[in-house]
């Protein structure tokens, strides 16, 4: 009885999470006339791939996918390197003011993203950075670096010190110890932080909307909201784009769910 109840709940939760995707998938497979017309049923009538073809051939949706990959990838590398260096010091090295450093990093994550838009726009305009990748890679550090530093500090602190101490006693220098003893154990933590950084930068709309004007610099979320001209929204293309944009993320989640869940909660809850 209780088991059956749990399974019904499970089914309801899964349905609730995934049904909107099914609905937009169905709409994306319908010809334009039915996309905006009254619904005939739960299954697409006259299924067609026109909209998928349209977003890639006429819509050039490959470019935003490439742009997002470059931008999110660069931010991830930068945030993980900077965050890991800081986190190692915070977790391992004897220094004063750790609480201040961690506190100010946390404070930055409370800064409203919207407040950065105006000043950064003026600075990037002055530097002629608008419509360049760096205009997104650099500010995405606001989103990614604080959480990276926190996750990695918590993660590094859990790695037993004995390994490194033994290596040091055996005469290995600090860098040698870091590279051959610490790094291999730290990789799962780095990977977890990297997934979250990648998702955070991939998902941003606000900065992309403000700093990217030319369509060939659009990121995925920005391209999705711009499948329209002055008079007309191409719903079929929007829906096809939403499905294309969601697929890689769904795959990432399916394969890495455990890691994502642990990264989200690392450092946020005692214990």
């Amino acid at each position: 009885m209780r088991r059956a109840g749990l399974w019904i709940l499970t089914a309801a939760i899964v349905l609730y999470s995934l049904f909107p995707f099914f609905w937009i998938l169905k709409s994306s497979l319908e010809p334009t006339s039915s996309v905006i017309g009254a619904v005939k049923g739960l299954w697409p009538g006259h299924p067609t791939l026109t909209h998928y073809q349209a977003i890639f051939v006429q819509g050039g949706f490959g470019q935003p996918l490439l742009n997002s990959t470059i931008v999110a990838g660069s931010t991830t590398v930068l945030a993980v390197v900077l965050g890991a260096l800081a986190a190692y010091a915070l977790a391992r090295l004897p220094m004063r003011g750790k609480a201040i450093v961690l506190g100010s990093v946390l404070l930055v994550s409370f800064f409203p993203q919207i407040a950065m838009v105006g000043p950064l726009f003026l600075v990037f305009r002055h530097l002629q950075w608008l419509d360049t990748y760096q205009a997104l890679v650099v500010p995405y550090l606001i989103l990614s670096l604080p959480i990276t530093t926190w996750i990695l500090t918590a993660f590094f602190a859990q790695i037993p010190r004995e390994l490194e101490e033994a290596a040091m006693v055996d005469g290995a220098g600090l860098w040698r110890t870091l590279w051959s003893v610490f790094a291999p154990v730290a990789i799962p933590g780095l990977f977890t932080a990297a997934i979250l950084d990648f998702l955070l930068s991939w998902n941003d709309l606000l900065f992309a909307l403000s700093f990217m004007n030319s369509p060939n610099m659009y990121t995925v979320p920005l391209a999705l909201v711009n499948f329209r001209n002055a008079y007309y929204v191409h719903y079929g293309q929007v829906y096809a784009g939403v499905i294309v944009a969601s697929l890689p993320i769904a795959l990432v989640v399916l394969f890495l769910q455990r890691r994502i869940a642990s990264g989200l909660t690392a450092g946020s809850v005692k214990g």
Binding site: L18, L199, L205, V220, P221, L222, L224
Partner: peptide, 15 residues
């Protein structure tokens, strides 16, 4: 459940 609820969390808010 975890996999299916993480998908809404992971997609862009625009999506």
């Amino acid at each position: 459940i975890r996999a299916s609820i993480l998908i809404p969390w992971a997609v862009p808010t625009a999506v």
